[in-house]
Design a protein around this nucleic acid. Sequence first.
DNA 1: TTAAATTTAGTTGCACACAATTAAGTTTGA
DNA 2: TCAAACTTAATTGTGTGCAACTAAATTTAA
Lengths: 149, 149
Amino acid sequence: MKKQPAPDLNSLQKLENQLCFPLYALSRRFTKAYQPLLQELDLTYPQYLVLLLLWEHGQLTVKALGEKLLLDSGTLTPLLKRMEQRQWVSRQRDPRDERSVVIALQPPGKALQERATRIPELLAAQLNMTVPEFEALRGQLYTLLNQLT
Amino acid sequence: MKKQPAPDLNSLQKLENQLCFPLYALSRRFTKAYQPLLQELDLTYPQYLVLLLLWEHGQLTVKALGEKLLLDSGTLTPLLKRMEQRQWVSRQRDPRDERSVVIALQPPGKALQERATRIPELLAAQLNMTVPEFEALRGQLYTLLNQLT
DNA sequence: TTAAATTTAGTTGCACACAATTAAGTTTGA
DNA sequence: TCAAACTTAATTGTGTGCAACTAAATTTAA
């Protein structure tokens, strides 16, 4: 039950008073912080996200990956083809529903998991946040994500 | 003086426990929320950010735009050339320092300001947040941005 | 049953992002 | 002074993102 849906409208025309800009900038800075760690594995950040899901689930359809990552086939198809070229994943039509393409983790992709183990903690260490702060912020971001989805 | 720099490491390998993914997804969702409003002005979100700064400052160098937006010339140069083609901005070398290029707002670019007035409040209305919540979140995002910059 | 609607990936085209490099201009320090 | 170091944009090349569209497979509803 929120009372004031719109904050301080007069100054919202300024970049630094908006919410979207720091999200946009911080998202890119985060990706850049991952970059030196991912570069050692020859991975981009979106490719790393796909692998995180496949390390957990083994295989997922393009549709399922798109739902979890909020990406569409226009982004995923070429990205997954590059990952297929490196033998990290396989791509094949589901025989039970030929519309679906199943992306399955392959041994070279599985082998990256071990090398990536410490990435999350190395990133978290750069943030200087407590666990409750971290979890509260994450919760707020997911709440907003639900608002906009 | 933070006591616990790294949160709950065991589960950080999962997408939904990380901070970067919701930032990445939310940033893109926000841009998508702006899109129908910006489309009426034939603007992309990064172009809109450039105009926000030029509406405030009149003119800025490429370097200054890059510092404020955390974007480099590889992104800005082609973007600004597209904005120049539409007569929204001019691009000229600073005679006092020929290395610098000054981006100056032009009348058609200035004219967009009025048409964009209500964009921030229309966006804010979709968030269902109070002013204090909004400001607290913005503050946290800027704090993190400073950590990573 | 079967034509229409829906679902799922893929394709196309455009606009970012950014690393790496280049080129030109300016500052500096021995 | 003047060569080296630094600063600033531009360029090149790669990889996303996403809107719009296409094509094939499946589901649906009359």
